[in-house]
Amino acid sequence: MDGSPDALHAAPAAEREAVIKVRGLVNQFGPQVVHENLDLDVYRGEVLGIVGGSGTGKSVLLRTIVGLNRPRAGKIEVFGQDVLSISDKERREVEKRWGVLFQDGALFSSLTVLENIEAPMREHLKLSPALMRALGNLKVRLVGLPGFAGSKYPSELSGGMRKRAGLARALALEPEIVFLDEPTAGLDPIGAAAFDDLIKQLQESLGLTVFMVTHDLDSLHAICDRIAVLAEKKVLVTGSMKDMLSVDHPWVHEYFHGPRARAAQGQD
């Protein structure tokens, strides 16, 4: 569990390729404005952690980027394509290049884990059943589940195993970006640390870009290259963990200097 690699921060931001570019995003539900002129860049190959208080629209931001929520205004570019204005067909091509892990896995309850992983392959790839089965089993093992877990139904798995299975499904199409919504919430500290390691290891060996909404300070410490703080309806600051410690906004200060944050830093 070492800190974030310095090499990434040494490169000036402008030279890195932004795979997700959000500009001037406005989200509003009734009279309640969640995001106002929100700007955010996610660079290729990084692990970006999104933090913010409850109700600051972290999950809404994730849902907006992956197209589950249509924003009131603004522009979202993924892989250089404006995902809000492209045709449905182009959109599906973009969707194949990302994977999403929802909070409780959101596995289809009527399918086994293996069938869950095969579902996106069946929809988007022309593979033989035997090949899909082999690749599905590979994904099951890749996320650290025992081989027999593939034939289980989601209701027969523990919460941590469901998250791993959800991650395996998110990786089924070999995505370039994975979106994780609170991946370690509800896991015990050992399970959470193991999940962090898994994400970091997969990210490094598969070269993934990871967009992670999290409240887990240990996760932020252990695997995030960059942190974006959502507050006052926009991305207040972005930067490494070190940068966060010197921000003097009251919420950010409280968040990164509170007793829990100090405990997390103590581990390094």
Binding site: R133, A134, L142, P146, G147, F148, S151
Partner: peptide
Amino acid sequence: TVARALPDAEEDAG
């Protein structure tokens, strides 16, 4: 990473 995750034949869900 993939080599480590290769399933054992008898352990597979089938």
